[in-house]
Structures are given as C-alpha cells and as structure tokens.
Amino acid sequence: MVEPEVIHRVAGAALLGGVMVLFGAGYAIFHALAGLTGSRGMAGASILSYGLLCCCAVGFAALLQLADWWLALMGLLLIGYFVVPRFIWKLSLAVHGESSHINNETPGQATAKDMEASRHE
C-alpha cells in the first residue's frame, strides 16, 4: 500500500502538469498577440504566463521529487516552452516574407502598419 499522501502528491503533480501546458499555450498566444498588436499588456501577460508556467514546473518537480535525468528534462521543457514559441513567431514572419527585424524596432507599430498594408493589397 502506498501512503495516501503519495497519491495526493501524484494527483497534484498531474494537475499542475496539465495547468503547466495551459500556461505554455497562454504564453505562446500572448506572445503572438503582443507581436501582432504591439500591446505592452499582451507582452506582460505573456511573461506572466511564463512565470506561472515556471511555478507549475517547480511545483511539479517538487511534488514528484524529481532528480537527475528527470530534473534535466524539466529544465529542457522550460527552455523549450520559452524558446520554441518565439522561434515559431520569427518563423511565421520569415516564412511570410516579412523580415523579422520589423518587429524588433518599436514592436507593434511597424507590424500594425504592415497589417494595414497587406489588407490593402
């Protein structure tokens, strides 16, 4: 028999794991919206989502008492969740023939203008 406490930790970890993926999606969506609209609020929400994702990940690892390989995996996941959506955003711009630097200088305005332009075409 396993102590009830153990299964509560496992169930808690499962829940946190699910929420973690949701925050990953939140981070990705807000990041993309920030890029589209140039809204600072969106950028903030994106960072906040990622912060909460990290909290979930820490809780997840603590509840499961992860170590070694599994801890490294969590680290990699944190990097992956951070980097991959950003890369996909840049890729979206690049594939559609928009040079990615447009977005870096005063994010948003250029992009918004760009959107206008593409609507008129």
């Binding site: 028999m1 396993v2 102590e3 153990v6 930790r9 496992v10 499961l64 008492q65 992860l66 170590a67 070694d68 390989w69 599994w70």
Partner: peptide, 14 residues
C-alpha cells in the same frame, strides 16, 4: 510492508 513512494523515485532510468 508498505512500498513507500515506489515508482516515485525512478531517477536516472537510462
């Protein structure tokens, strides 16, 4: 006897 946290400690499985 109980198997405390069996399965929870699968570290370094490779």
């Amino acid at each position: 006897a109980s198997a405390p946290a069996a399965g929870l400690s699968m570290r370094g499985a490779t």
